[in-house]
Every structure is written in C-alpha cells, then in structure tokens.
Nucleic acid binder design. Sequence first.
DNA 1: GCATCAATCTTTACACTGTCAAGTTTCGAG
DNA 2: CTCGAAACTTGACAGTGTAAAGATTGATGC
Lengths: 193, 193
Amino acid sequence: MSDHYHHGNLRQALIDAGVKIINESGEENLSLRKVAALCEVSHAAPYSHFKDKEELVEAIKAHVTGQFMTELEKAVSEASSAEKALVDMGRNYVAFFVRRPDYFKFLFSGQNIVAHIQPGKDYEEDYPPFVLLKETYQKYLAENKISRTKEEQEVDILKLWSSAHGLASIACMSGVEVSFDWEKKIATEELLR
Amino acid sequence: MSDHYHHGNLRQALIDAGVKIINESGEENLSLRKVAALCEVSHAAPYSHFKDKEELVEAIKAHVTGQFMTELEKAVSEASSAEKALVDMGRNYVAFFVRRPDYFKFLFSGQNIVAHIQPGKDYEEDYPPFVLLKETYQKYLAENKISRTKEEQEVDILKLWSSAHGLASIACMSGVEVSFDWEKKIATEELLR
DNA sequence: GCATCAATCTTTACACTGTCAAGTTTCGAG
DNA sequence: CTCGAAACTTGACAGTGTAAAGATTGATGC
C-alpha cells in the first residue's frame, strides 16, 4: 500500500474537499470525517495538518476569502476613478454573495468573521478586503482633494463597509429579493457626499 | 416519583434553559441534552414539545427577538416624530446588539435569520422588526407629505434596514470598536434625504 | 369510582461527530 | 544504511441528535 501514506499535498486537498462539500450540501454537512473520506484518507489524518476542526474551517474560509478578494480587486482595477472604484466595490461585494449566499453564511456565521479577524486583534492590518477598502478610500480623498480628520475617515469607511455588508447579509439570510435590481439599493453614492 | 412526569411547563422551561446556556457559555454549547439536563428531565423529553433541535432553536430565537423588539418599540414610542423614530430605531438596533454580541451571532448565524424569515416565505408580514420598520417609514412619508413609488419605498426600507444591520454585524463579528461613539456611524439621517 | 386514552416523559439503542493515544509506514538527513 | 521525524492508520472514547418502545400521568366519559 504505497498509496496510503504520504498523500502528496493533503493539506490543500482537504481544503478543496471542504469547499466541495459546502458547495454541494451546505456547511451543516461539513465534518472532518467526510472531508477525510473525500480525500480517501483515514478520519484522523487531518490532524497532521490542522490542530482542530476550527483550524481547517479557518483555512477554508481564507480560501473562499481569496475568491472574494479577486472580485473586489477587479472592481478597483477596472474603475476609471477612485470614486467609481468605491461604488463598484460595493456592487461587487453584494454581487459576489448574492451569487453565492452559501458562502456568506459560511464566512460570517462562525465565531470569527474570518481567520484574519478576531476580537481584539488588529483586523485593520490583516483582513484583505478591509485593507483594500481603506486604500481605495484614501485614493478617493487624494483624487478629490478632500481633507478629513482621522475619526471622520474611520466613520466614512465603516459606513461604506457596513452598507454593503448589511445589504449582502439581508440578501443572503432572509430571502429578500436583492438579486433583481439590487444595484439601485447600494447606498454608496449617497454616503460619499 | 411524582416529580418526573408532567413537569408543568416544560416547553417554556426548555426555552429559558436554552437562553441561559447561550448567556453563560455561548451558542456552541447549546445542545438538546444539556438543555434537558438543566430542566432535570431525560434527554429525549424535548421531543414531546419540539420535533427537532432546529425547532427548539427557532423558539429560542423568537424569544430573543421579542426582547429585541421591545428595544425597537421603545424608540418608536418615545420619538416625537416619525423621522426621529426611524433614526432612533437604527440607534437602538445597533445598541441592542453592541450590548449583546452573542445574541447577534445566535440570531443571525443559522440557516434562517429567524424563525419568521425563511427563504421564499412572506417575511414582510411575519418578521416583527421588519413590520415595525415598514410602518414607521409609512408614517414618515405621511407626516412629511412625501410621495414615492412602491419600488422606491422598498429600496428606501432596504437601505435603512441594511445600514443598521450591517453596522451591527460588523460590530458584533469583527471586534471593531463601534461601542464608543457608534452613534455617529449610523447613516440613517443621510439615507433619509 | 373506574376504565380508558392521549399526552408527557423515560429508557434503550444507533449512527455520527471531534478528539486523543498508540502503532505503522515512509521520506530524507546524517 | 540507519534512524528519527513527519505523515498516516487504527482503535477507542465521550458527546451529539434522533428514533422506537415502554412507563406514568391527568383528564374524560360512563
């Protein structure tokens, strides 16, 4: 049995299997043993790569957050101005989760929003979507020669973030029809004046 | 053993025990068997009152949502105008969950936002906080003699709801300090013009 | 006052879960 | 070639939700 030991890249395989399970049968069916079975490996094998179920889940979250980030980055790179970038980031933020409500539930239904963000931690430095929002906002201030205090900036950023996140949350958790014409419901433009 | 059968009001006792467990050791420790044990009842007793663990959880959520509602109703009853009521509802919405982030996680971290709201269901009629928001918004339109189309109204309501919910979500899930001066961060006023 | 019945609760059992401890295989450094 | 560490297996355990079957109770009709 040369197959059974030293799988090759089991760590990544476990993460991929986790994503697959979530896609096919929802987060509630995500178990260590099923993930291991999908990789044709014994039920305790994951413990060689993750100390916990939690640690595997966080790794999967980081993976999904990666996909989410490429959506946000696309908005930034394709926008002609920083202001448009902010608006489009909001749109893509909601659009990503409207297409994948299961991902929303998975990412934001645990103890911590994502592995990067933990109560008391320095989320501002570590959580990629937040970093991108912050940078884009700064660029927006510079382009339009707007000067705001540190505190005003924090408030602005939080408003931008929470309006998109709130809409995504309601769309994903309540079955409200945001998928149709949801673009009108993004309040980013209003918040920027 | 006259004590062991016919508990009296086991259904409510189970709900209360569930709330107690969530308060003391978090949602992750909420199990049917612990709830039953707290009521000094066998581990299968809950099945006389709830068909599922899910059904018990939904009952607990409805109970907590009740407490949440009294907070929102207070904002409405104490406000001098409908416009102020809308603003204060937003404040109290966030304030409630800032004080009890565990409640936010519990209410909005499951399959369905609350028992009342289920994908495809008529959430508009059944979810008390939403009904209250809708009524107050209508009063606001009437008081200020504003006329808006059905669709514009839906968009407005969704913006109001999502801005408060988004801020609460970020406050509860990410450890961002919204507790201090969070009142400045409510965008309700801006959204009303 | 008594039998009966449905509701309520207990007991037992099962499959599934996360986790740990101990053993087995394999790779690679010395 | 050896041998230690890393990767994986096997076996076990407590805790979970749930179903089936039996026990107890209060209420109802006679």
